[in-house]
Each structure stands twice: as C-alpha cells, then as structure tokens.
Amino acid sequence: MQTTQSAHLPTEILLVIAEMLWHDEMFDRGGMILMDRQRSFHSFCLVSRQWYSVGISYLYDCPQLWKGNKFAQFTNTVSPPLGVKKSKVDLGSLVKVLHLGSLVHQSSNSQTSRLLGRVKKGLTVFVAPQTGIGVNSLASISKCQNLVHLDLTLARGGAIEFSRLKKTVSNLPDLQTLQLPSSMVITHTNHSAGAWPPKLYSMTIGGSLNPHVMDAFDWPSNLRQLILKRTKNLDIPDFESLLFNDQLLEKLESLTLDNENTNMFSSLDLESTVLYLLRNLTYLKMPLDFAEWLCILPIPNGLSPLSLRVLELTHPYFDNQVRVDFSRELKTALNENLRNIWALGVGETCLKYIKDAYKKIDNEIWKHVEESSDDELDKLAIEDLGIYTIDDDPIV
C-alpha cells in the first residue's frame, strides 16, 4: 500500500543535516559548485513543510543568480510584480549575501533599488552589478543597516559623486570593508557628506588619483588595510602623495599593489622611502619586480628596517625586468631591510626566479620566526610562516 505521508525526523536532526550540507567543503571551490548547493537546498525544502521550515533560510542566504534566468526568478519571488500574490514568509529578509557582480544588463537602477529595499533587513554583503547603480540605489544601500561588506568595483563610478557615496556609507554603522568603483573620481568632502563608519578598516580604491587630494585625504579613522586596484596613474609622485598621509603613516597595517593598476611606476629610476615610514605596516603584496625598488635597496640613511612581517610577490608587472640573481639579493635583504619578515608568499610564475635558493630563503625566514617571542607570533596569528606559494590570479 502506498502512502504520501513524509517521514518525520526530529528538527534537531534536520538542522544538523542542513549545517553539514551548507559547510560541505566541496562547495567552496566556485560558482558552479555553489549552484549545486542551491539545487540541493531547493530539493531539501520540497520534502515536507518541516524540511522547508529548516531549509528555507539556507536557500535564500546566498542566492546564486548568475546563470540563465535565475535573477529574474529570484526578483519575481522576493519582489513580486503588482497584482501577484506575495509569499507569507518575508523571503527577502533571509538574504544575507547579494552578489550581482556577474550580471551585465539584467538589472536596471530602479530594479536594483527595489530589490535592495526587499533584502535590507538581513543583508550583510552586497556586490553591485555592472549596471543598475545610481542615486536611487545609493539611497537604498544607505538603508541596509547591517551591511558589513560593500563592493561597488564594477559600478560606473563616473556617474556617482564621491561626496554622495560617502554620505551613503556614513549611514552604515557596521560597515567594515568598502570597495569603491574603479572609475570613481575621489575628491575632498565637507561635513555635509558625513563621517566614515567607525568600523571601516579596509578600502579598495582605483581610478585617477589626484596627488593634491590624496596627500590630505580624510581616511576612515580606523583604516588599517588599503588595496590599490585598477588605478590609472599610480606613478611615484602619486604613490608617495597617497601614503605620505598622517593617518596612513601611523595606522596602515596592510597594503596591496594589484597587477591590474595601469601606468604603475613607469619610471623605476627614482627611489622611494615611503614604505619605511609606515610605522605599523606588517603586510605588503605587490608585483615581484617592484620588490627591489621598494624594499630590497639598501636601507635609507637614518631609517630602520621595514616593519613587514608578511611579503607576497605576484607576477612581474614589467616583462623581462627581474634580474637572474634576484634570489641572492633577496637573501641579502632578509638580513637587512627585511629582517623582520616571518612569511614570504611567492606567485606560481615567480618561483623560477628563486628556485635555486628556495630552501636557503626558507631557512633564513624561519630564523626570524625563532628569534621572535610567542606573544608576538600570537598577536598577528599568521597562518603560513616561512616561504609558501600563492595563486597569481586568484578567483574573486
């Protein structure tokens, strides 16, 4: 005899199953795999009302919207058109991560704004689409009071005034990381633009940087991490005007110079000592060929060795600029400029420049580690000590 009655399991057991399915390591590798997780939770919710009540929050936590008509289906469900019956459950409030970065033309300014209004209660991470971000969208973003991470990299920054963007994020008390549009023009602002969120510690900036603006720029008071990506004119004067800022000289702990910057250091004949003046800089990531110019040259007179604990070297920015004897110079620097280094990450394409001295470099770095106190090591909690390999082109 057949029965349509669903098998009942204690809710506590279903919660364990859902957690295991959510945190399965096989889902950590990329978008297509995460789409599989989405399908799994969709099936989970179809088993019975009990399973639905447990699985629905996982289904909407981080929707995968980049394939086929998934985005249209999602928006019609979370923000149904006029005349369409709404769900009894506030599905929009279950969304914590809204990643629209893979969308090209699927969303308009008004649609993005309306969608943000539906998901604002629980949203902690928002990645903006390539189109569909304007004044109305900024107003909707300002109402997402629980936002922790805001990524506007792909948005058309030229259409957004910097003062208006700052005023928007000033309303986000929990915001910790901010990625500005890569085409945004950064300007001075007055008090009407509001103050930076108190918890904001990381910023990614790009576009054209005006030295006259950046040398006196009002950075967030607790900024500790700065990523320079897709800048258009990061030459030596611009680089120094950016970092010769009282706030950064005192507080900056992490600096990344991305390979996607254009016209970066077009003249390496000029030297710079600015990194030696960043008192608390412990992490630096940059193209391999800039290492000699920025931190392997002899220590400038009157200055102490770099405070760096972690140095990561990515694919060379200029072709054929790395010397064959780079490993020898690096070993020398580990006893001078880089004597505080605990960890050295080397891009896969850069290994050939140090392969003959890989073991010796690793041994030298471990000497630094062994000479440090346990309290120092525990404070920074660096995962990889010694020398290790990094991905030159990580999937973001």
Rank of each mutant, 00 (worst) to 15 (best):
I133Q: 00
Y283E: 09
S221K: 12
R328F: 09
V78H: 01
N261D: 10
G92L: 06
I354W: 00
L200I: 07
D174L: 11
E312T: 09
M184A: 13
V54H: 02
V89N: 06
V324I: 12
Q73K: 07
N335D: 14
L268K: 03
L297R: 11
S192M: 06
T131K: 05
L100V: 08
N69T: 14
H188M: 12
G122P: 00
S142Y: 02
S183F: 00
D218Q: 12
Y353M: 07
V125R: 00
G157I: 02
K229M: 12
T177V: 08
P63Y: 00
K367L: 15
G206E: 09
L46Y: 03
P81Q: 04
I361F: 03
H8V: 15
K167M: 08
P181G: 08
V322L: 06
Q64N: 08
K355W: 05
G386D: 09
C45V: 15
P173R: 04
L281K: 01
F41H: 05
N190F: 06
N320H: 06
V346M: 10
T168E: 05
G345W: 00
I227D: 07
L123D: 02
V369E: 10
A128P: 02
S266M: 14
E19H: 07
H212G: 09
D378C: 10
A139C: 10
D218A: 14
W293M: 15
Q130N: 10
G207F: 03
L284W: 02
E364L: 08
S170Q: 07
K251A: 12
K379C: 12
L330M: 13
L200T: 02
S53D: 15
I361A: 09
M286L: 15
K352S: 14
G386C: 07
G122I: 11
L243V: 11
C295H: 01
Q38M: 12
F290S: 07
D215E: 14
S304P: 00
I56N: 06
T11W: 04
Q225N: 13
K85C: 13
T124D: 02
K360G: 09
E364C: 11
M184N: 04
H105S: 15
L116D: 02
V16D: 12
S48M: 03
L147R: 04
R230F: 09
V396F: 06
N259S: 11
N76V: 08
H8N: 11
E370R: 11
L59C: 08
R323E: 14
G68N: 14
S241R: 04
S192K: 03
Y317Q: 09
Y58K: 11
K360I: 13
H188I: 07
P10Q: 09
S267P: 00
L226K: 03
I236S: 04
E25R: 06
V322D: 05
D36I: 12
L277W: 03
F41G: 06
C350E: 02
E292G: 09
S182M: 14
L180P: 01
T282K: 00
T389Y: 00
G347F: 03
K121R: 12
K355S: 15
K88Y: 05
L223C: 15
L228M: 11
D289K: 02
Q179C: 14
V322E: 06
W66P: 00
Q73A: 14
S272I: 04
D391L: 06
